[in-house]
Design a protein around this nucleic acid. Sequence first.
RNA 1: GCCCGGAUGGUGAAAUCGGCAGACACAGCGGACUUAAAAUCCGCAGACCUUAAACGGUCGUGGGGGUUCAAGUCCCCCUCCGGGCACCA
Length: 871
Amino acid sequence: MPEIEKNENQNRYNPAEIEPRWQARWDADPSLYAAEPHSSGKPKFYCLEMLPYPSGQLHMGHVRNYSIGDALARFMWMRGYNVLHPMGWDAFGLPAENAALKNNTPPREWTLKNIEQMKVQMRRIGLSYDWAGTEIATCLPEYYRWNQWIFLKMVENDLAYRKSSKVNWCPKCATVLANEQVIGGCCWRHEDTLVEQRELEQWFLRITKYADELLDGLDKLPGWPEKVRTMQRNWIGRSEGTHVDFAVSEPEGQRVSESASQRVSEPEGKIRVFTTRVDTIFGATSIQLAPEHPLVKQWALNDAALQQSVEEMIGQQKVARETGDIGNIEKHGVSTGGHAVNPFNGETLPIWVANYILADYGTGAIMSVPGHDERDFEFAQKYGLPIKRVVAPSVSGTEEIALPYTGKEEAVLVDSGEWTGEASLEAQDKMARFAEEHGFGQKTTTFRLKDWGVSRQRYWGTPIPMVYCINGHEGVKPQGVVALPESALPVLLPEKIEITQEGGSPLAKVPEFVNTTCPVCGGPARRETDTMDTFVDSSWYFYRYTDARNSNAPFDSDKANYWFPIDQYIGGVEHAILHLIYSRFWTKVMRDLGLIKNAEPAERLFTQGMVIKDGAKMSKSKGNVVSPDEMISRYGADATRMYALFAAPPDRDLEWQEEGVAGISRFLARVYRLTSKFAPVVRELEKNAHGDEIAPSAFAAQTPAGAALLRTLHQTIAKITEDFSGRWHFNTCIAAIMILVNEISTAEAAMDAGDISAGTIAEVFHKLVLMLAPFAPFMAAELWEQMGGEGVLFRQPWPEADAELARESEIEIPVQINGKLANVVKVAAESDEETIKAAALADEKVAARLVGKTVVKTIVVKGRMVNLVVK
RNA sequence: GCCCGGAUGGUGAAAUCGGCAGACACAGCGGACUUAAAAUCCGCAGACCUUAAACGGUCGUGGGGGUUCAAGUCCCCCUCCGGGCACCA
């Protein structure tokens, strides 16, 4: 074989030179990462990472998130998939308004500038997004008009409605928050700011209509982390039980009026309770009402003492709720003097008000069964209410078990009239049916999930496309709500606006915006001045990506149906019950509107761990923030992103250590030097191969050194290929590549000396570079070109592992004596158990240890180990 | 209180199916190269005991018990850390 001149000089790794050069080349080709038409015949793969809020500064959490997605997208391209890899901006939100206040910059300008800045950072990292085809910014009318469009569809379908209710108010945001945005009694953006309760008129989305489907659907999402599914299950909080109506006899001098029983549309003169244990109803010894129960409110009007107690209890609940201490407050209660009749046995029970009853769960009223409920027990003890046993464990027979006894699986009813002797679970069913037949109750399901309040008293969000007709007209009262027609969209956010710190909707102070005409009667009208929660924007953005430039519809259904569901969604777990539940809801709504066919947005979800520094989450206040820009200018983008994948498995928290990045950078320099040096060898062969796959391995494997190198190569390919298919332990993938490179490095002298064929050298470097492509795209592209590779590296076929070449001919077998390692023996890889056993016994060290002992048992695991049990 | 994670060398971690614990790195130490340093390359490296050194031995995956020829891995109990839920009737 002719001597090929190697490249000994030009092999210093200089990412500062390589990376900008390649970035410029990639940026110059907007179709580089574009998805192909559906007719391409390739299987599709929708790879999605959560879109960022354009704060202006990319942080390490982003780098990690996007490095994972980028590696996967590039890998899937190389595996021959048609990949959609989009990116956009979650561009509405309060920080823009705060910045406007601080710097006197309009929110739009501030946001767009930040987007440009962050895009520059993302490009520096070499992320493979189809900017030209997919990029969206949710703050632009081209996008948010479709929020308005879908909102109108929701109004039409009774999925959006307006009502007055108690809502969460963050004084710092000066706006309302959804339940999901209240974390431990505080605002999700201001962790130390307590959320207040205010009574306001708000727009709500009827997410509860889908409560059952949202819950049941979780079982059909095996590709989602169990943790996220559990959190959503808890959040939805489905609870199967029974409503029972108790007839009320009012306290002295009180009347049960019609208006008192509006809460859960209970029949007049009745209190409706919700219970999951209707089987214990014979043990009810009182009725407990929430302090905010309408009946209590009414009775308190004529009873100053009651009024005062109730106010105290409401106060206690408020404090407890705000401090997150609800659950531990001391139980207080007071008798109302009223009575209720247990419809099952005609017993008369006193009606109390108690601070441990919540008005917004169930019916705000319970039957208190102290014998079989811990809370009721505690309360009854404190106030001397009777405690009755009506359920006993069947297994213990007559043996008395201390009250409260809350078991139900093995429980049997006692002292319960005609149901005595029934098993608890069956009794629940039969008693509910009995109540239903007699018209005083029915089976019910209660949810913790509440409708999604989407009104925000802020400027920088999507205007809600509704108006209030001032004079009213047929079918609409004065000041009544009127939906705008589709043709009136988009309702544009006014550009000229003064942002102040005062509360209230900023849009209300813009007369040009507020004053309009009623689309139905043409009379004067005022616009809704609240804007939509920004979680609306992110609830469906991934559909828009499939058809981002469509100006006639939110997207083309055929396109969405081709790409959906998302094959892999990657993001932080902090959105487990915010974005991830809203977007599941939105998907179901759009499905019912006929826009899409899929019931769930994403087939698989991956939640990556946090990036931490010095043991704590990076934050400005802790001063432990590491800037991606700084890392990139010091070590290069390849080293930075590769470290983010190497330092920990992606699902775990990652401790950022700069020395580690330096280590990766050294590793890359070694790869670069070696590959660059032998690139001419590869190029030469490539030229002669005429496009055929170069260096068929069988031909190349002619020396032991070459064979060993090829063995490691193919083992590495097998490992990485397998890992990409699900486990995603990129840290061990990169470790495997390091082992390969170490081996190449060791073989350098042999390669120089011609002990390893040019074909082998070519194959090794060729495939090494292909494997580096998802992790270090800049350097891989550079080396690919140096090796004479043609076409785009990221569209080259991923190397196939050759099992034959990967196979070890000889393996080491540990020999244990009584489970302790005695020595390691070498045997042929295919050796059967007898051969291995013989080799073990023949080993000198092993033999020496066996002197004077008897082998009573030998365990041989083929290809694994030998254990000699001796006496 | 309930439900999920997690705990492995000085550090980040590996061990995918019950089969050599610590792969691969970082930091460290020793050496080569250099006038010197940096860079690079080579080597050592869990703890303890024994030893002049080596050989050798013991212990070791948060703690305690168990199953097994064999346990980081399976079972039971407990501690600590992180996260979620929490008078949800």
